[in-house]
Amino acid sequence: MSESVRFRFNVDGSNFTTAGQASVQVKKNLRELGIPAEAIRRVSIAMYEGEINMVIHAHGGEAEVIVFEDRIEIILSDHGPGIPNIELAMKEGYSTAPDNIRSLGFGAGMGLPNMKRYTDDMKIDTELGKGTTITMTVKF
């Protein structure tokens, strides 16, 4: 395997205000590495949506971003409640986010579909009561 760069973050699940900090940092790091702008944008948006989801639904978790020569992998793991019905969760407009989240500008049921749209590959491993791990790949 060729040399890769790795970034790890803890996503604080207790504070909606700080949600997205890891994504902002990743965006800066990727810029410094000279990754193509379009790839940075796709990674940032997908990761940001994922981070917001982790804060809304799963009390936070861990985010890891691995930069390979030709692709970026984003791994988001949480110990939240898990996703009972992935097919439903992937449907645009379907959301289980509480009303207070909607008043903050999120919870439109676009998070997961958006993450899929902006990445080349997305895998969801989820177990009820145990947590969810989402692995996304952006090629460049």
Partner: peptide
């Protein structure tokens, strides 16, 4: 936007 919270800034940043 009429929304005021930190996520507005982060969203804008993510979208360039």
């Amino acid at each position: 936007t009429g929304l005021v919270n930190s996520q507005v800034i982060r969203t804008a940043e993510m979208m360039d």
